[in-house]
Design a binder for these strands. Structure first.
Length: 282
DNA sequence: ACATGAGCCTGTGGGC
DNA sequence: TGCCCACAGGCTCATG
């Protein structure tokens, strides 16, 4: 389920527990997620210190002391959970879920389990020197919260697409990190119909869309951050938190734009649900 | 070069 | 209660 804000929240959580720590043992219970784990996955990670935890689009990049980078993508159902450290349950056979595929035992006793029922997630291990040529990463477009994303960039790429703007927003090669939920949410905020052809969006609307994307992602990261402060006392599951979506999954509800008396519709675009208000999104 | 659809997997919820 | 179907927030590859 994770889009950029969820992945960023997971990154911060992992950072708190893993950065600067050593990895002791790595247990692999399922060697094939989206793809097979590389040979010597465990060997190259065990007894290494985790130096940095970064994010690029929806990918996590964990660098360890021998120069390898652990690349993680959560797919649609991937998550990490924290165990065996103060405030969290001990990780043992009674705790192990059947979809726990990879478990990291840190030197300080903390256990971090990767769980993924649908196995659409991925993990890979590459040398730091190969990061810039690693295919899944090198094809990614700009970070929507970074400096490279502005009205000029967006308009340039919008003008080169005749597909509906909703589909355009899901293209990771243009903007990295937007998924099906935040595409709908951002278009609602910008007052743009998801069905509008990308190349028929005005300069002014493109500017509004940049702001809408930034705001919706930042707001979601903020609400994830507040969950992050609480999760110590609840459970150790990182990255899943309830948002109040304005259009996503709100079919039939009144539009929450106060100047609008419309109703949220659900349509299907290239096989995926899109939610929008036909009255105020043009 | 682009756009679309299938496939990868398992779980959940609604209708009957 | 059980069964069947539709659907789920991502990505890549094959095909047109």
């Amino acid at each position: 389920m994770p889009e950029l804000p969820e992945v960023e929240t997971v990154r911060k959580g992992l950072q708190q527990f893993m950065e600067g720590q050593s990895i002791g043992k790595v247990e692999v219970f399922t060697s094939k997620l989206r793809w097979k784990l590389p040979e010597s996955f465990e060997k190259n990670l065990s007894n290494q210190t985790i130096t940095t935890i970064a994010r690029r689009g929806k990918y996590l990049i964990l660098e360890v002391s021998n120069g390898h980078c652990l690349i993680v993508h959560l797919g649609m159902t991937g998550s990490f959970a924290i165990f065996s450290t103060n405030g969290f349950p001990k990780y043992d056979n009674s705790r192990k879920d059947k979809h726990d595929h990879v478990v990291f035992h840190l030197g300080n006793g903390t256990v971090i389990a990767y769980n993924d029922p649908r196995k659409f997630g991925m993990m890979d291990l590459i040398p730091e020197s190969k990061l810039s040529i690693y295919p899944p990463l090198k094809t990614l477009g700009v970070e929507p919260l970074g400096n490279g994303f502005d009205e000029k960039y967006l308009k340039y790429h919008l003008d080169r697409r005749s597909s509906p703007v909703k589909n355009f927003l899901l293209d990771q090669k243009v903007i990295a990190g937007i998924g099906n939920i935040y595409a709908s949410e951002a278009l609602w905020r910008a007052g743009i119909s998801p069905r509008r052809k990308a190349n028929r969006i005005s300069q002014k609307k493109a500017g509004l869309l940049v702001t809408a994307i930034r705001d919706v992602l930042n707001d979601a990261i903020k609400s994830g951050g507040s969950t992050l402060r609480n999760y110590r006392s609840v459970a150790g599951n990182l990255g899943y938190f309830q948002h109040q979506f304005r259009v996503y999954d709100q079919e039939g509800e009144p539009c929450s734009n106060e100047n609008c008396d419309g109703q949220i519709n659900r349509i299907v675009q290239t096989g995926r649900s899109t939610f929008y208000c036909p009255s105020c999104q043009k």
